[in-house]
Design a protein around this nucleic acid. Structure first.
Length: 824
DNA sequence: GTAGGGTTAG
């Protein structure tokens, strides 16, 4: 109700707002029917314990990134804010000077009342107008064009005070809460240079209308313009920007998803010596959630934690729920330019956030009367659902289930969303018995989607088939939503690509809304796996049918598919086109490195890799490992495709993002020669294991190598030095990274090359002790090592028999597996 | 009505 009143601009609402104890009338909860008491907020120590345990069990060793420090992040934010403000100011002054240049008539939309009217206006008419546009008479039905015309003609007689009063009344009574009207009235105030007469409340009212604008760019920039004007007034001590003004802008930023702007504004509030309001943090949380272009989760969380820990700010429940949801699903590593933090894990960060929430809640209890005797959980079902879902994404079904049980103990009833989150946890962990058991009662779209996609991920074709079959018949029914339909398409793509492709057409013909982007992506990926670049390109061409242009993610899949088809020029062309539209993430960059190396374009890969680092982009672990793979290759590939040499300068620009953004274009214009000097040179890759080792040392400065990285490094050494390969192997075991069958095989390969029977048998025993099952390659290199080391023939035969025996049963396994793998 | 389920890398 309050929001409706406020929107109508009713005086009652305004007064009610003014007298609200916290003057917190932009609070999101204020607009809600069920305003939660602060005590209903998060407060439950035992849950925190549980989560901390989950974080400890799942957290991997620290992955550090040499990036900006917290301090420089803040500075950058301020600088960005300044640039943005400067741009807004330019915009404002441009619009102002335009208004000045144009005279009276051009400011009016109604061209009928122009100069002719001015000359023929009689004294009587004037006095009529005087009456009509008297501040007291300006009401709802007032014609703004007429009013503006009148004011321009009579401003000299009326005096600026009177002009201002008329416009002010118009703002309150005639704008009708229409954004455009309010903005035009404000522009008139600027034109008549009367904004200095505006009171803080007038500014507040204006902002209150503007915040409901529909266009993100105009809405925010207009509001920032108003704020800038207010700031100028503040400097001449006319006005003071209050928290409510900031709240209005933050509210709009929340709606529009301008997370960078919201962070910067919160910082500004702090610099002004205020403590931001809880509702302002809620706006920040909403802005972070709604921002599709920038992930400010970490920055926002830190601002909130600081406020809680230092200023005892009690966050609103909405902000908590939103932040918990965002934090718990943060990717644990590999984000480019990520801030250096110890808590790189989503759950760690969530725990840290909740600790701050607990801290301030407990503090509040002590300050208040300590009457809270209830042990009942103060978390609501949404917080639990977010947390369960966060654990689910990490495949931590054990803790997800514990949390779910705990929630039930607290007497909270799980909803469909909660059960879906738990099903997702089981599915990710590969526990399909548990997932199906939960699904048993009612097959809801979201639950089926979850189990289905996880079954595909885990190659559980029996589960996928069983689940998909009944839905396949009604694929065209409206009862199936987008996500489920896409999951069913995925099943089809995996079982029969051509059939899936035909089916896409059938669906589209039935109803264009039945097809979506994800389906096209599945078709592109499926075609890539079939190594058919014609099919890839054809499938990619389906994107327009979904009514959406391909996102960066869709383009990522295209590039990957083209690399799989060994069409390097096409893949690189697609990648460069992708770069022109946005900044590829670390996964895309690693995929490009990998694609090049898989296609034996080692030199180009090496140069892309160098260019990234030189540009300050930290390649992630996957990129490093792919690069290492070039050194581990048995065949030498140093030649470069001529076509790629020609494409290199452009590729270099695409990788580093030189003059692709507005800023860099400006930079280039400013400093033309400097950019042109930088003709990128293709450096040859020097393939010796010491170089590989240097690369490995370098990556350990940023990330923790995993079993794949170690194995690749061992493979680099296996042809050169058994001692060094063994060193890496020992280092791997000492670091707690478990060798895989591939690791042991690489070691055995080294033993065979260096004719070490003793080494081979030691490695083989180690493998047995670790209960790792050998594969045919393992047996092959073990035997080869023994043969080359001239071990006693009877001994070799003995092991050869063991190998045949083991492989015989393995073959059976394989056959069974492939039988099982045959889908639908 | 908030929270949940769809497509990325050996």
């Amino acid at each position: 109700m309050s929001s409706a009143l406020a929107r109508r601009g009713s005086k009652t609402a305004a007064t009610a707002c003014k007298h609200h104890p916290n003057r917190n009338y932009f609070s999101h909860s204020f607009y809600r029917r069920d305003v939660l008491s602060p005590h209903q907020n998060i407060r439950d120590m035992s849950l925190l314990w549980l989560l901390t345990a989950a974080a400890c069990s799942s957290s991997s060793p620290t992955r550090l990134f040499a990036c900006r420090t917290a301090l420089s992040m803040t500075t950058t934010a301020i600088q960005q804010r300044r640039t943005f403000r400067a741009k807004s100011e330019q915009l404002a002054s441009a619009s102002r000077s335009m208004a000045m240049m144009d005279d009276t008539s051009s400011l009016l939309t109604d061209s009928t009342c122009t100069t002719t009217t001015t000359t023929t206006t009689t004294t009587r008419e004037k006095s009529l107008s005087n009456k009509k546009f008297h501040p007291r008479r300006i009401g709802k039905g007032c014609d703004l064009d007429e009013l503006f015309q009148y004011l321009i003609e009579s401003s000299h007689q009326l005096g600026r005070e009177r002009v201002f009063k008329s416009l002010r009344t118009a703002l309150y009574n005639a704008s009708g809460y229409r954004v455009e009207s309010a903005w035009r009235i404000y522009q008139q105030m600027i034109h008549h240079k009367v904004t200095d007469l505006m009171g803080a409340n007038n500014y507040g009212h204006l902002l209150n209308i503007l915040k409901y604008g529909t266009d993100p760019t105009t809405t925010i920039s207009r509001m920032l313009n108003v704020l800038d004007d207010l700031r100028i007034q503040q400097e001449s001590q006319h006005q003071k920007i209050s928290l409510m003004h900031y709240s209005q802008v933050l509210f709009a930023m929340g709606r529009m998803g301008d997370s960078k702007g919201a962070c910067a504004l919160i910082q500004e509030i702090k610099t002004q010596g205020h403590v931001p309001l809880p509702s302002q943090f809620t706006s920040l949380a909403i802005a972070t959630r709604n921002d599709k272009f920038y992930d400010a989760t970490q920055e926002a969380a830190e601002l909130m934690m600081e406020a809680m820990n230092k200023d005892q700010v009690v966050l609103e429940n909405d902000a908590c729920v939103t932040m918990v949801s965002l934090l718990s699903r943060q990717r644990s590593q590999g984000q480019r330019q990520q801030q250096m933090t110890v808590e790189n894990n989503g759950i760690d960060r969530t725990v840290k956030f909740l600790e701050a929430v607990e801290y301030v809640r407990n503090k509040e209890d002590v300050d208040d009367t300590p009457t809270t005797t209830t042990t009942k959980s103060q978390y609501n079902v949404h917080v639990y659902t977010s947390l369960i879902s966060g654990l689910a994404q990490k495949g931590d079904a054990t803790n997800a289930k514990r949390l779910y049980d705990k929630m039930r103990q607290q007497g909270l009833k799980p909803t469909i969303a909660t059960r879906t989150a738990l099903i997702e946890a089981y599915g990710r962990a590969g526990d399909f018995d548990a997932a199906l058991k939960l699904l048993n009662r009612k097959h809801h779209n979201s639950m089926v989607t979850s189990v289905l996609t996880n079954a595909i991920r885990h190659n559980k074709w029996d589960v996928a088939e069983m689940l998909a079959a009944p839905w396949m018949k009604k694929l065209e029914s409206a009862k199936i939503d987008d996500k489920l339909r896409a999951a069913l398409m995925w099943v089809k793509v995996k079982s029969d690509l051509d059939d899936a492709r035909t089916f896409f057409d059938t669906l589209y013909q039935k109803d264009a809304s039945y097809v979506n982007t994800v389906m096209v992506n599945h078709l592109v990926t499926g075609s890539g796996n079939q190594r058919s670049n014609e099919k890839v390109k054809e499938a990619y061409g389906l994107h327009p049918l979904t009514g959406k242009s391909p996102s960066l993610f869709s383009q990522h899949l295209l590039v990957d598919a083209l690399f799989k088809c060994r069409d390097v020029p096409a893949a690189l062309t697609a990648f460069m086109s992708m770069r022109r539209q946005g900044i590829p993430d670390d996964i895309t960059l690693a995929m490009v490195i990998r694609g090049l190396i898989m296609n034996d374009e080692d030199t180009i890969a090496w140069n892309v890799f160098r260019a990234l680092k030189k540009d300050g982009v930290q390649p992630n672990l996957w990129a490093y490992t792919s690069m290492l793979k070039a050194y581990a290759k048995s065949h030498s590939t140093t030649g470069i495709n001529k076509q790629l040499v020609d494409v290199w300068p452009e590729l270099h620009r695409a990788v580093t993002g030189r003059h692709a953004t507005v800023e860099s274009i400006m930079e280039k214009e400013k400093n033309k020669e400097k950019v042109e000097e930088e003709a990128p040179v293709l450096m040859p890759i020097i393939k010796n294991p010491s170089q590989a080792y240097l690369l490995f040392r370098e990556l350990t400065g940023f990330q923790t190598p995993n079993e794949y990285t170690y194995t690749t490094l061992i493979a680099c050494f296996s042809k050169h030095s058994l001692a060094r390969a063994t060193d890496v192997f020992s280092h791997m075991c000492a670091s707690g990274v478990k060798p895989t069958v591939q690791t042991y095989t690489a070691m055995l390969q080294a033993c065979s090359i260096f004719r070490s029977a003793r080494g081979a048998l030691l490695i083989f025993r180690h493998m047995r002790d670790q209960q790792v099952a050998p594969n045919s390659a393992t047996w092959h290199y073990l035997l080869k090592a023994l043969v080359r080391a001239r071990v006693d023939k009877s001994r070799i035969d003995q092991i050869g028999n063991m190998a045949r025996e083991a492989m015989g049963s393995n073959d059976n396994d394989k056959n069974n597996k492939s039988k099982r793998k045959k889908p639908l």
